[in-house]
């Protein structure tokens, strides 16, 4: 009986709940090709994107087993997007901070100056190494 209890406990600890996938672009329907590129990637199951003038921030959710090569995947996506849109500057990352900041921008519906300010802030944050 005790053993069964432990096995059940282990099962409970080892199985995780899965989140709903989220695929959002802000402002909506601005870059339909961006969504096509991201949807074609097998390793990516969710994405959020914010566009402000020439800056495009893309936060991607990478599948568990692909996370070993997360930097490589983000780099490849960035390269592909830059080839498609040479006039825009992309920032692709799977960092949680980027995801949460983009969600915040979407929730608060930031526009113009405020949007520029927060996009610049995020960009400088993600460049930091230490």
């Amino acid at each position: 009986m005790i053993k069964i209890k432990y096995i059940l406990l282990l099962l409970l600890f080892l199985t995780a709940c899965s989140n709903e996938t989220n695929q959002m672009v802000y402002p909506e329907n601005d870059l339909p090709e961006l969504e096509q590129v991201l949807k074609s990637k097998e390793a990516v199951y969710g994405y959020r994107s914010v566009m402000n003038k020439d800056d495009v921030l893309v936060s991607i959710d990478i599948r568990r087993m692909h996370q070993f090569s997360e930097n490589k995947i983000a780099k490849n996506i960035k390269k592909e997007l830059e080839e498609k849109f040479p006039d825009k500057e992309f920032l692709v990352s799977n960092d949680l901070k980027l995801k949460w900041e983009i969600e915040k921008i979407m929730k608060q519906n930031l526009k113009n100056d405020e949007l520029t300010k927060s996009v610049d802030e995020i960009k400088s944050l993600l460049k930091e190494e230490t």
Binding site: F13, D95, L96, K97, L98, W100, E121, L125, L126, E128, E129, T130
Partner: peptide, 28 residues
């Protein structure tokens, strides 16, 4: 050990959420 690491992970999330730290810089 798992409980200690869970607390550490929660503190990491706290720093990412409420302070200007990214996943890479929140470790310190």
């Amino acid at each position: 050990g798992g409980a200690i690491c869970t607390i550490g992970q929660l503190i990491t999330f706290f720093y990412i959420r409420f302070f200007p730290f990214t996943e890479r810089t929140a470790a310190n």
